[in-house]
Protein backbone atom coordinates (compact mmCIF):
# COMPACT_ATOMS: atom_id res chain seq x y z
CA UNK A 1 0.00 0.00 0.00
CA UNK A 2 1.44 3.43 -0.88
CA UNK A 3 2.40 5.62 2.05
CA UNK A 4 0.32 8.82 2.02
CA UNK A 5 2.14 10.22 5.02
CA UNK A 6 -0.97 9.99 7.22
CA UNK A 7 -3.25 7.31 8.48
CA UNK A 8 -6.94 7.24 9.24
CA UNK A 9 -7.82 6.91 12.90
CA UNK A 10 -11.20 5.63 13.86
CA UNK A 11 -12.99 7.98 16.27
CA UNK A 12 -13.61 5.09 18.71
CA UNK A 13 -16.68 6.34 20.55
CA UNK A 14 -16.89 4.96 24.08
CA UNK A 15 -20.16 3.14 24.67
CA UNK A 16 -21.08 3.79 28.29
CA UNK A 17 -23.79 1.12 28.09
CA UNK A 18 -21.06 -1.48 27.85
CA UNK A 19 -18.48 0.05 30.12
CA UNK A 20 -16.29 -2.40 31.96
CA UNK A 21 -16.12 -0.97 35.48
CA UNK A 22 -14.76 -3.99 37.33
CA UNK A 23 -11.27 -2.54 37.77
CA UNK A 24 -12.63 0.83 38.85
CA UNK A 25 -14.96 -0.85 41.32
CA UNK A 26 -12.14 -3.01 42.70
CA UNK A 27 -10.04 0.09 43.37
CA UNK A 28 -13.02 2.05 44.73
CA UNK A 29 -13.91 -0.70 47.22
CA UNK A 30 -10.44 -0.67 48.73
CA UNK A 31 -9.62 3.00 48.27
CA UNK A 32 -12.83 5.07 48.20
CA UNK A 33 -10.86 8.30 47.90
CA UNK A 34 -10.66 7.66 44.14
CA UNK A 35 -14.25 8.91 43.97
CA UNK A 36 -13.21 12.36 45.09
CA UNK A 37 -11.12 13.13 42.01
CA UNK A 38 -12.19 16.31 40.20
CA UNK A 39 -9.88 15.80 37.21
CA UNK A 40 -7.93 18.97 37.87
CA UNK A 41 -4.67 17.54 36.51
CA UNK A 42 -2.37 18.73 39.28
CA UNK A 43 -1.08 15.15 39.61
CA UNK A 44 -0.08 14.95 35.95
CA UNK A 45 1.57 18.36 36.08
CA UNK A 46 3.91 17.32 38.88
CA UNK A 47 4.35 13.67 37.87
CA UNK A 48 7.95 12.45 37.67
CA UNK A 49 7.04 9.80 35.12
CA UNK A 50 5.35 12.41 32.92
CA UNK A 51 8.83 13.61 31.96
CA UNK A 52 9.30 10.50 29.86
CA UNK A 53 5.75 9.19 29.28
CA UNK A 54 2.09 10.18 28.89
CA UNK A 55 1.45 9.39 32.56
CA UNK A 56 -1.32 11.40 34.19
CA UNK A 57 -3.37 10.09 37.06
CA UNK A 58 -6.22 12.29 35.96
CA UNK A 59 -6.30 10.35 32.68
CA UNK A 60 -5.90 7.02 34.47
CA UNK A 61 -8.89 7.78 36.65
CA UNK A 62 -11.06 8.82 33.70
CA UNK A 63 -9.99 5.83 31.61
CA UNK A 64 -10.83 3.50 34.49
CA UNK A 65 -14.30 5.04 34.72
CA UNK A 66 -14.79 4.58 30.99
CA UNK A 67 -13.46 1.02 31.04
CA UNK A 68 -10.46 1.74 28.79
CA UNK A 69 -8.26 -0.81 30.51
CA UNK A 70 -5.62 -1.28 27.80
CA UNK A 71 -4.77 2.41 28.00
CA UNK A 72 -4.72 2.33 31.80
CA UNK A 73 -2.21 -0.50 31.65
CA UNK A 74 0.03 1.45 29.28
CA UNK A 75 0.00 4.51 31.50
CA UNK A 76 0.45 3.08 34.97
CA UNK A 77 3.44 0.95 34.04
CA UNK A 78 5.46 4.17 33.96
CA UNK A 79 4.67 5.15 37.54
CA UNK A 80 7.63 5.28 39.95
CA UNK A 81 5.46 5.44 43.06
CA UNK A 82 7.33 8.56 44.11
CA UNK A 83 4.16 10.06 45.60
CA UNK A 84 4.57 13.61 44.31
CA UNK A 85 1.02 13.49 42.96
CA UNK A 86 -0.27 12.84 46.47
CA UNK A 87 1.38 16.01 47.73
CA UNK A 88 -0.42 18.22 45.25
CA UNK A 89 -3.84 16.59 45.03
CA UNK A 90 -6.46 19.12 46.25
CA UNK A 91 -8.97 16.38 46.99
CA UNK A 92 -6.65 14.16 49.01
CA UNK A 93 -6.93 11.19 46.69
CA UNK A 94 -4.65 8.42 47.92
CA UNK A 95 -2.94 8.22 44.57
CA UNK A 96 -0.16 5.75 45.39
CA UNK A 97 -2.59 3.28 46.89
CA UNK A 98 -4.72 3.72 43.78
CA UNK A 99 -1.80 2.80 41.52
CA UNK A 100 -0.88 -0.20 43.65
CA UNK A 101 -4.46 -1.43 43.52
CA UNK A 102 -4.59 -1.03 39.75
CA UNK A 103 -1.41 -3.10 39.50
CA UNK A 104 -3.04 -5.70 41.68
CA UNK A 105 -6.27 -5.75 39.68
CA UNK A 106 -4.44 -6.01 36.37
CA UNK A 107 -1.91 -8.48 37.78
CA UNK A 108 0.95 -6.27 36.71
CA UNK A 109 4.36 -6.79 38.25
CA UNK A 110 5.74 -3.77 40.09
CA UNK A 111 8.91 -2.61 38.38
Amino acid sequence: MPDFGFSIQSSQPIDLDKTYRAVYNFVKEKEPSIQRCIYCGACGATCTAANFSQMSLRKVNLLLLRGQIAEVRQLVEHCLLCGKCMLVCPRNVNTRKMILLIHQALKMPLS
Binding site: S11, Q12, P13, I14, D15, L16, D17, L62, R66
Partner: peptide, 12 residues
Protein backbone atom coordinates in the same frame (compact mmCIF):
# COMPACT_ATOMS: atom_id res chain seq x y z
CA UNK B 1 -17.87 14.18 23.91
CA UNK B 2 -15.97 13.41 27.07
CA UNK B 3 -14.07 16.67 26.86
CA UNK B 4 -11.55 15.66 29.53
CA UNK B 5 -10.54 12.54 27.61
CA UNK B 6 -11.22 13.97 24.17
CA UNK B 7 -13.31 10.99 23.16
CA UNK B 8 -16.87 10.68 21.90
CA UNK B 9 -19.31 9.01 24.31
CA UNK B 10 -22.57 7.17 23.76
CA UNK B 11 -25.10 6.43 26.48
CA UNK B 12 -28.61 5.00 26.75
Amino acid sequence: EDTLLGKPLRLT
